[in-house]
Amino acid sequence: MLDNRPLKMCRRRFLASVAALPALTGGAFAHTMPHSLPWSPFAGDPPKPINPLGWYFLTPSEVITVEAIVDRLIPADHLSPGGKDAGCAVFIDRQLAGSFGKSSHLYNKGPFLPGLPTQGYQGELTPSGRYRIGLKALEDHVRAANAGKSFAELTGEQQDAILSGLEEGKITLKLAPGFSTRQFFELLLQNTMEGFFADPLYGGNKDMASWKMIGFPGARYDYRDYVEKYNQPYPHGPVSIMSGAPGWNVKG
């Protein structure tokens, strides 16, 4: 079930109709008036926190694999919960189900030719397609090499050895033209880290675990009183968009 439908229809610019903004006439001696700029109430586009329940893109068996992977990339220890408990698999699932997974704002026209490293990813598969193929190829590889055991059934050390093998190019999975094993690993790593460090709004970084771990205050917006306090820790803990302004920005 490759998700590579024609994406033209999803593009935001074809949904909106032309918005002409006529100059507002203000008379010969117009003052600055509060409504002289185009403005409509509630025109903003606040983010929608993800629904934490269920899976939108990953299949049940893919969920088990992804949860095992993110828990090795970010293991639980005294510094933070592991990737799974931090919500990284949920994050990846929601990203793959949305615009990121579909590459809907990328340039998706052919011909798809093999590129040079300086030319970036040139494959035809969208991120969701890459996960689907990559996870299956990974499981096939693991089961063949481990007497039928799945990735999640291996020990932590064995899992780490496989992930290193993908990262360093020692394991070659059967993927697709323009999509290498290393690129699959980089995608996994990138998305896991995005989930771990993004605002909790998107399903990962539960309880701002990563921000607490490194001392990042998150969505705070005013440091005027602290910039010149050299070599001193910032005294306040993090806030997130969700925790920062409850009430109005979780509508929708």
């Binding site: 909106a16 025109a43 903003g44 993004a198 968009i241 920005n249």
Partner: peptide, 23 residues
Amino acid sequence: PWRDTATDFNIGYMPDELRYAIR
């Protein structure tokens, strides 16, 4: 599109690294 501070660069949700800096 049209964009302005009050509506589009809203302090309530502007500090969102994933949405604005990564995506």
